[in-house]
Design a protein around this nucleic acid. Structure first.
Lengths: 146, 146
DNA sequence: GTAGAGGTTCCAGTGCGGGGGAAGGTCAAG
DNA sequence: CTTGACCTTCCCCCGCACTGGAACCTCTAC
């Protein structure tokens, strides 16, 4: 089966089980017998993923489509939500980046010999010991590079 | 025990087990008997987290500190890596945001009635059915808002 | 016939930072 | 003494999109 687009059997099974691919027919021997339409569907799924939708969300789009016809409103609402979430997330990451750069610049001005006293590292200042939550408190789902 | 900063017992145990908090003394009855210094340490951990370091990385900083004294070089290297990772991640998210906005704008120009034919939704165009990987292919570890 | 490349099932693990809840012990107040 | 709030240990759960492996079956080519 077509595995050219980095698309493994595992992924297909996962998509099927996640409800974003229709349950395919089977050959007499039990193999999945994919219809050509699955390629279109797959293209849709990939496009939706590229727009940042989760498989669960993609499934809702498909369900709306099947139940009520064109899911345009549903989709635009999802896109709006994601755009807002992206704005927020980007702002958080930019704040974190600013903080990291500030600390990095500060580090260059410090004398390691002066570091030795009580904390772990003077580059990352303790601030008020556990006073409030983290001040610049970016949740930072770190560098999750695939 | 101090739980004011959204700091639960669970989190403390987790930090301890992750090696970013020292193993505390115990009272006769088995309760953890925290030293005041743990507050400083906790402040450090939070500061490091705010800078986007993982608990594992924070642990390495502490270990370096304990083994070799001031971990300045280690820390600046970590900060540099994170700054680069943040740049990358932000660029990815911005690309996704651009895509989402483009789709959203496009959605406003479409007629739902024209949608009904073959795909699931014309707002998210299929492109070439499963030709290459996702074109704007942002890995998008989605809107992980804590 | 036989090898090898595929498919099928199911279960489990990844990374990250915890949270939920059970079963039991402990502590201070009333 | 009892109540209720807290502590202790334990192990499993979440999201998210897959991936890996075991054990087995099937198809094609030689």
């Amino acid at each position: 089966m077509a595995e050219r687009a980095g698309l493994t059997t595992k992924a297909l099974r996962f998509y099927e089980q996640a409800g974003v691919l229709p349950v395919p027919a089977r050959t007499a021997s039990g193999y999945r017998d994919y219809d050509d339409s699955v390629l279109t569907r797959l293209g849709f799924v990939r496009a939706a993923q590229a727009a940042g939708l989760t498989l669960a969300e993609i499934r809702t789009v498909i369900e709306v489509r099947e139940d009520q016809g064109p899911p345009c409103e549903h989709v635009t609402a999802l896109l709006d939500r994601h755009a807002a979430a992206l704005d927020k997330r980007i702002a958080e990451l930019e704040a974190t980046r600013t903080e990291v750069r500030r600390l990095r610049a500060r580090a260059a001005t410090l004398d390691p010999a002066a570091c030795g006293e009580d904390g772990v590292c003077q580059v990352l200042p303790t601030g008020a010991p556990v006073s409030g939550a983290t001040p610049a408190a970016t949740p930072t789902p770190r560098t999750a590079g695939r």
